[in-house]
Nucleic acid binder design. Structure first.
Lengths: 209, 209
DNA sequence: CGAGGTGTTGATTCCCTTCAATTACCGTGG
DNA sequence: CCACGGTAATTGAAGGGAATCAACACCTCG
């Protein structure tokens, strides 16, 4: 806590944020734009949404007065923000917290990236659960597994079908059927029930939307 | 960056983490437990899961080597963590980052709480989308709205039915039908299409699981 | 070899979507 | 003030995708 400097005029203190007003339906920032700010809602309501290539829309969150949004673990926004009704917002410059030297309350700096990574993971998960079909979920899941796997095309599933079902919001039967369908479609091949080859990773990626 | 002290014996440097091994299916921590650590996966696979009162299970994420998990915006874990297969983990003490004096790369400290709040929001959202019926989603949504509303029992919906549908992973028709059902059940009452009274908040909360 | 958990497959049911039509709402302009 | 147009919301009927119920195959381990 630094003591105030009473003799310095107010307009000499640096501005730390900018207030802006938005009308209903106005875009605040777009998906893919440089994530230069995070934003505090003073008044109104904001929605964070992303759109699929085929037009499906998904709203990840509503932000109302007091909420701060716009945190990203990457350089660009992964969803758009739009004013639901007339809204007043404060924009704070977002210095890249991961690149920044400062840690998080004594915690190793690298941890900070993990926190933001958790947000991205949870958001992506919600989007998958909210707006995707069973086969899209399975495709996305296999792509995720592939990214973790040493050999991109050979995936070992350490978890049971029930685990997969509970992760994707499905039943074991549906998981099994969708995997069977992917096999019949020539996308994957079973080495065993728990180990499979991804024969067409690009197609899987496309099928996961 | 502090230079190493070459003459000091290694066992005099303070331990900053503890390595522990877990066997398949072993619990790492339980939902509701004090969130005293966050955890780095060195080897193996971990699932983060929560269970509903009626037995439904939801897995929020799988964590594999290199992932750090266990971040909470509250004092307790909001989900359990379990080893999927034999796993090696590092436990770091988790000082409460919100209470801590240090900020986040020059960013106001309060922002930090928001980041963690976003995680909690996204996790809760995923859980809702993954394992709840349409009427449960609507109930949960109304409870959320109520928490934001000045007058807890009078909620003004600034957003359209389409917005609600895209948030809950439903269609406008289903949203409309579920709201109608809640009205017929005496849970809510319409002042107008965009404004409604919550007649039985406790029942709504219960219906949202 | 048998027991039990795990995974697959089939038949049926049901919840939600889709398609379609009607009604309510709200701002505009006559 | 009210007719008008367009969007938003509700309601109904039909269809589909995933759940449920049920049976069977597979693998592991005692």
């Amino acid at each position: 806590m630094r003591a105030a400097a009473p003799t310095r005029p107010a307009d000499n203190t640096p501005a730390i944020g900018v207030v802006r007003q938005f009308v209903a339906e106005q875009t605040i920032y777009r998906e893919g734009e440089r994530a230069a700010h995070f934003v505090l809602v003073i008044d109104g309501l904001v929605r964070s949404c992303s759109t699929f290539a085929d037009g499906r829309r998904f709203i990840g969150a509503f932000f109302s007065v007091g909420d701060i949004f716009g945190f990203e673990c990457q350089a660009t926004y992964e969803a758009s923000a739009e004013a639901v009704c007339d809204s007043t917002l404060v924009f704070y410059p977002a210095r890249d917290p991961v690149a920044d030297g400062a840690g998080l309350g004594g915690v190793p700096r690298q941890v900070l990236g993990s926190v933001l990574g958790r947000i991205a993971q949870a958001r992506g998960h919600a989007r998958l659960l909210g707006r995707c079909s069973a086969s899209e979920k399975l495709s996305a899941f296999l792509v995720q597994c592939s990214q973790r796997s040493k050999a991109r095309e050979l995936v070992t599933l350490e978890m049971t079908r029930q685990d997969i079902a509970d992760y994707l919001g499905l039943t074991v039967e549906t998981v099994s059927r969708c995997l069977g369908q992917l096999r019949r479609d020539g996308m994957i091949e079973f080495v065993s029930a728990r180990q499979l080859k991804l024969l067409d990773l690009a197609a899987l990626r496309a099928a996961s939307m």
